[in-house]
Write a protein that binds this DNA or RNA. Structure first.
Lengths: 153, 153
DNA sequence: TAGTGTCAGTTGACACATCAACTCGAAGGC
DNA sequence: GCCTTCGAGTTGATGTGTCAACTGACACTA
């Protein structure tokens, strides 16, 4: 394998970061799943809806907020509505609302403390305050690059 | 939504970092997919096999190297062997080798430059050398925490 | 030698993500 | 009025990831 174009240091930075993300994501997801039966995707949708007035958001707006493709959101809402976590409501002639149900709110409420605790334990506490700020800066920089590179993202 | 247990700064660090890594991952994957028809998973397997003597690695060892569950590796190798990128060979009575094919090598060789270029463009170049080192340290710290928390990972 | 445990590998079910193609109503121009 | 375009939403196909249950060979031992 030749790695022209990346120094060892750069390659290591990439592989370590990528691997860390994979593991961290899996671990957070696992905790959510076993403690509440929610996936990361479920949690994201419920959190966004619960913060919105009336617990309802237009589906395309929800997709924009979560940065998801519309069909991803559609499939996700399908699965969640089968489980009673959300419902859909017509909005005018062509629009749809996604609405969090009572059961959705209850499930989220039950899931939040453990989730926050896990994020704190695995992500926040191992790092110094300085590292956390550095990381925020780094993430923001790369996000800017990504959005500049393909503005619609 | 109440976020007991996380300060605004910590929450922002978490959300920004998570979002950045998700987007970056998707973008790298997209580039690989459109330029070579490979997924990140395909690429990982091909890269590992191509670096091994004889282009072959025991399946369980491959899983260990990539940090994957055995069934994930199994399904992945199934899909890849259907496409002619790898084959399997018996190893003794109970073992299996995964072996990269000529076609797998060719596909990988063709994919590497664009992939490396994309990693450089989206991940390495936006950051200063100092930031890159900081990030490597941060990722390593979190990885250590994860592995200490559940040693088999 | 039967019983037990272990480990690599396999399988099937299900959830998640992405892509392309499609519907349908609205908006704008002619 | 008619046509085109567009955007929100829907659908199906395919690939990806996880879990639990199973197989089959080996090792250990009572």
């Amino acid at each position: 394998m030749t790695w022209q174009g990346l120094t060892d240091r750069e390659l290591r930075a990439w592989r370590t970061s990528f691997h860390m993300l994979e593991l961290l994501r899996a671990r957070i997801e696992q905790q959510l799943q076993t403690s509440s039966g929610l996936s990361n995707a479920d949690y994201t949708v419920l959190a966004l809806l619960s913060e919105a007035p009336g617990g309802r958001i237009r589906v395309y707006e929800l997709g924009r907020l979560a940065n998801w493709e519309k069909s991803r959101m559609h499939h996700q809402l399908n699965r969640m509505s089968k489980r009673g976590l959300v419902t859909r409501e017509r909005c005018g002639s062509r629009g749809m609302y996604a609405v969090i149900t009572t059961e959705g709110r209850a499930t989220l409420k039950q899931a939040v403390p453990g989730h926050v605790q896990e994020v704190r334990r695995l992500f926040v506490e191992p790092l110094t305050a300085e590292q956390l700020d550095q990381l925020t800066g780094i993430a923001a920089t790369i996000l800017d690059t990504l959005k500049a590179d393909r503005p619609e993202a």
